[in-house]
Design a binder for these strands. Sequence first.
DNA 1: CGAAGAACTTACAGCAACTGCATCATTACC
DNA 2: GGTAATGATGCAGTTGCTGTAAGTTCTTCG
Lengths: 210, 210
Amino acid sequence: MGLRDLKKQQTRTAIADTALRLFMKRGFDHVTVAEVAEAAGVSEKTVFNYFHSKEDLFFDEVDEREAALVAAIRDRRPEESILVALRRSQLAGCGRMCSAGFAGFARLIEESQALRAKELEVMARFSATLADTLQDELGCTDLDARVAASLIVGVHWQFFVIARQRALAGRHGPAATRRLRADLARAYELLESGLGDLGSRKLGADLQPA
Amino acid sequence: MGLRDLKKQQTRTAIADTALRLFMKRGFDHVTVAEVAEAAGVSEKTVFNYFHSKEDLFFDEVDEREAALVAAIRDRRPEESILVALRRSQLAGCGRMCSAGFAGFARLIEESQALRAKELEVMARFSATLADTLQDELGCTDLDARVAASLIVGVHWQFFVIARQRALAGRHGPAATRRLRADLARAYELLESGLGDLGSRKLGADLQPA
DNA sequence: CGAAGAACTTACAGCAACTGCATCATTACC
DNA sequence: GGTAATGATGCAGTTGCTGTAAGTTCTTCG
């Protein structure tokens, strides 16, 4: 890697770090791209040369997360099912989502309409990638793959929202982690066994009373 | 209703109709709000007085759709399960999504990043509303309600995407409708019975080979 | 080594979505 | 018919984002 690429990488991380620092201090919506550029000692245009949009300044690890998702499936243990592998991968992230520092991220996203909208776009992208991976891995129909991917990503997203809201409510630490893990297990249970004949009785086949 | 409210309604529909006509002709992204305002014989500011954003000019029936979703559950037939009621409600819309005119809508959404992003926001809103309705109707836990809602909305969205893509591929008419209905039934099957131990065998428990 | 050329940055002008404010026209109410 | 509420308008301004042309830095190759 030449000097040019090195400087590029430095510039990129400098911009992203500066942006995150400003966002954390004053909220995503109350920071302009021009301010980020100035604080990073770079022109506004350069920011947009590196990042497709202002939101991408925040969600700049999406590619890696996406790769991790695919890897969790592809590199799953022998005889381990895809759902189990995904659950294990998710469980590993529970600790981070229940750390004290996570509340800052949570607040940032929860307070910004723009970030929440962008998050949904990321989820849609994950869903498409996951569908491709599932079809490739299982050889099932396109429909099945897409529906399955949609179900899985839907659970992941909902779960992420719940984790954020709990972090905002100040629930962190080991007890919160245990609770989150238990809820994740429950969510995967529903994913695996389905909603049953939802509502045919007072409760759906597998739903727990409050 | 007084004269003032009547004129308001007229203005609103005039703006929305004009906007849709222009969007259909030239695509969502290539029409400015100023053009819509001028074509509707109204100031640009007035457009924003009626519609919160440019995208809302297109998705202006969301409230009604949301109400219909809740109504489909609340007013379901006695002894009919929620999933069956929702499936029935969805099946009723298959015909429209397989009509020749639907391709125009499909193209409009598919060609615009902004509209696809907005669509996701709408889905997220549906998910929240559906979760509330489910919890109210079934008395289950908050987690179960939200996960179930996420699963259901995920399927609906994915299904809508598929319908759009088929419309764009020129597949309409009775045959396409039958196919879409069959696929919807299949999607609800997965929703009801779950993904099984996905991937533990060559195929997931319930997934069909291609 | 030095010049050609590629790649990156910058300033600048500009577009379009969207907002706040003061003002004007219309409607509702008495 | 006069007054108060309400909606429409014009206008200036903010912000995200883009195109272009010019300048600067790095690479590469003769």
